[in-house]
């Protein structure tokens, strides 16, 4: 009997702990790109009704674990967790991206210092609070970074770049760990 086997983007690469920081792959469920055909208000209402989270403002996220919606670019949000209610498709494009992104979490005291080696954005709590999200770069890669809590960040890059993501983060983690 032939069977297709699933492999996650960071299979065999994670977890890694260096110093006080741990990098691990996150299984966040479904990833769905949402993009309104015009104004986002109808899509926002449908989203709230179906999944309990509203359309996020730029650089913000709504909802919580298991049903989160993060701002993902101009006129784009990413629904993370549930399978999307297909009623949303009336108001905008609903595109499955569950396999398109490598999703990792970087957690532990110093996690922000690690990202300061790779990300040109102030991710400290004062400027980047829980629930804040940003489309930026991790070293040379386009990425999405969301603050899940103090010293706890979710980082997403293209699935094909998972190896480079781990390589870059590992180097930064080692550098931060070496400073003690």
């Amino acid at each position: 009997m032939v069977e297709l086997i699933q492999i996650s983007p960071c299979a065999g690469l994670l977890p890694i702990t260096l110093g006080s920081v741990t990098l691990d792959e996150q299984d966040v469920g479904r990833l769905t790109s949402l993009s309104p055909f015009g104004d986002a208000s109808d899509l926002s209402a449908a989203l709230e009704k179906a999944h309990g989270c509203t359309w996020p403002k730029p650089n913000r996220s709504t909802g919580k674990d298991g049903g989160r919606c993060i701002w993902f670019g101009r006129d784009e949000a990413l629904l993370i967790g549930p399978a999307p209610d297909m009623g949303l498709a009336k108001h905008g494009a609903v595109v499955d991206q569950s396999d398109a992104w490598a999703v990792v979490s970087l957690a532990g005291p110093g996690a922000v210092d690690v990202l300061a080696r790779l990300v040109p954005v102030d991710l400290r709590d004062a400027a980047f609070k829980r629930g804040h999200t940003v489309r930026t770069q991790v070293m040379h890669m386009n990425a999405s970074i969301t603050k899940l809590g103090t010293d706890h960040l979710m980082i997403m890059v293209f699935r094909s770049m998972a190896g480079t993501l781990v390589y870059d983060l590992k180097g930064a983690m080692a550098a931060v760990a070496s400073r003690g």
């Binding site: 055909f37 494009a93 595109v95 569950s98 398109a100």
Partner: peptide, 12 residues
Amino acid sequence: WEVSFASVTEQW
């Protein structure tokens, strides 16, 4: 125009 597009290169 009422149109949206998204890269799905990595999805498939």
